[in-house]
Design a protein around this nucleic acid. Sequence first.
DNA 1: ATCGTTCTTGTAATCGTTTACAAAAACATC
DNA 2: GATGTTTTTGTAAACGATTACAAGAACGAT
Lengths: 329, 329
Amino acid sequence: MANIHQVAKYAGVSVATVSRVLNDQGTVTAKTRIKVEDAIKELNYEPSMLGRNLRNSESRILLILIPTISNPFYSEIIKGIETAALKHNYNILLCETDSNPERENIYFDLVRKKMADGIISMDPAVNMETLMKLAEHHSIIQCSEYALDSGIPYVTIDNEDAAYRAVKHLIRIGHEKIALINSDEKFLYARQRKLGYQKALRENGIEVQDNYMFHTQELGFDQGRQAMRKILDLDDRPTAVFTVSDLLAIGALKEIHQHGLLVPNDIAIVGFDKIDFSNMTHPTLTTIAQPMYQMGTIAANMLIDKIKGNEVDSIVLDHELIIRESTSG
Amino acid sequence: MANIHQVAKYAGVSVATVSRVLNDQGTVTAKTRIKVEDAIKELNYEPSMLGRNLRNSESRILLILIPTISNPFYSEIIKGIETAALKHNYNILLCETDSNPERENIYFDLVRKKMADGIISMDPAVNMETLMKLAEHHSIIQCSEYALDSGIPYVTIDNEDAAYRAVKHLIRIGHEKIALINSDEKFLYARQRKLGYQKALRENGIEVQDNYMFHTQELGFDQGRQAMRKILDLDDRPTAVFTVSDLLAIGALKEIHQHGLLVPNDIAIVGFDKIDFSNMTHPTLTTIAQPMYQMGTIAANMLIDKIKGNEVDSIVLDHELIIRESTSG
DNA sequence: ATCGTTCTTGTAATCGTTTACAAAAACATC
DNA sequence: GATGTTTTTGTAAACGATTACAAGAACGAT
């Protein structure tokens, strides 16, 4: 493979001139530009990002920290990030932490070692202390899940209000016994959504019952099933369930079917996220739509801005209640 | 941020010695090693991958080419790739082509420009000519979808046999009118699976009917619905459907339900891939299990081997028929 | 004390770019 | 043609690591 010196020699110019042609900057006569371009073609030259990156002290890579790629919620965000990144000539390094601190550290090291120019963190289980320390010298954006007092800019939705609206919808269509399948309350979004759930109940004179609130370790299908199983075992069985993720909802749905009950007639369900699959189940899921793609593009643009050295402000995006079959009884 | 020279100065040694400590090679006295390690700690030094990569002419990045991250089939493979890559100190650059040649080219450029050390291509729609040309000078592995005569090593399953077994299962449980929802036959796997479908029919004295075979542009839910709609419109309606992806199958399932019919009683369905969601539907999907995670790890190991300059052989992995509710009538 | 070995360290080139600065060329003006 | 101004090009120093090779230190044997 040819390098810039060989191109310069072949074209009979200096490396500086070749570089100028390459980057379309500085002034180059048409005649020399053509000489250089010919040489580039002739030698099949491709400029090495390794040299360029070293010289520019950048990697043009953004690190995306997610707990797992299996949750479609994240894939949709990633799409947004990728498109925005590409537009600015950045590429994305995918990092699944599996909420494993060891992996997390490997990935943090990548930005410490300049292999990445910044981080978009979407892992609720991320080690906040480390992240904050890292943020002192590196560009970081929080996406979806965040710590308010970290001083790290974030893009997210109003979780409390979203949950409030979801539960209010259930109340409006006549439900009073409404269960909550939440995730671990060590996560901010879990606490916020619980608040929304409680607020909706209280506002409508419905007592908040502790035995109607369940917690799961993860946001998956299996956890949804298990939680639903417990709910079905309750003496005073709820007529509706609000879950904090579509995957949980789909698990709950499955469990309800397995018990020979019908959704929404016997039990209504509301999910959260509006992943593609929420529209593929039978019945289709009522859910809260998060603007995932947009969250991705915005997060990426914020990060790139931050890398450039600009100040960036946190953003709260709109959500929307999508009413579908699982509550239309 | 400190660099190696500052560390050397602080420790009172040469950069060579620091480098030796960093990489645990060459000989260093215990005494000087400690001096260097102290300096590293004191200055908060982190070796820059940019310098190292340039010197070593490598990026330690593997490029993963997929059509879309939304299909869980790919996410599972990616998990395998990531784990294997990490074990060898490589990282993965995620590249969604959306089967868009322009995007593809952007990503190909990354390896031309040494931003990536190799490619794992999983995009059936990849431009084979370009890929083959690229393979002359770069390390490439095909995963799942492949071109046999490309000379590029691949890891995959026996698609024909898998389809054959799926359809034979349908025949065994009494079906004779079996439709096929296939994807575009420009893809090798589509042609192979069709062969398997036909072989199973012929072997059992069932005529292969052209009007029972359908093609879709993509492997998604919507395409599955549309194809199923056409099938339901047939005069002589099939009693079973074999689809070449779980997403297609889930779409078909939805459409059947919408028409007030039951699976498997009215129509049985077999999918392909065994994505997580195939177990979440109601009824659960009979499907062909591809060892996706394993395919990922193997592909990654093959690629890393190839990058090292070793010869690597293509591999055909085992598949398995998973019988579930959608055919257990 | 001298020599030969072995072990440890240092010097300086290298990887492939970009860019500040200097130098040369081109042009306009008188 | 001499001079000044502008435009175009070239020289050489970064960026931050690794590594041949050379040199120096340490050590035992004589």
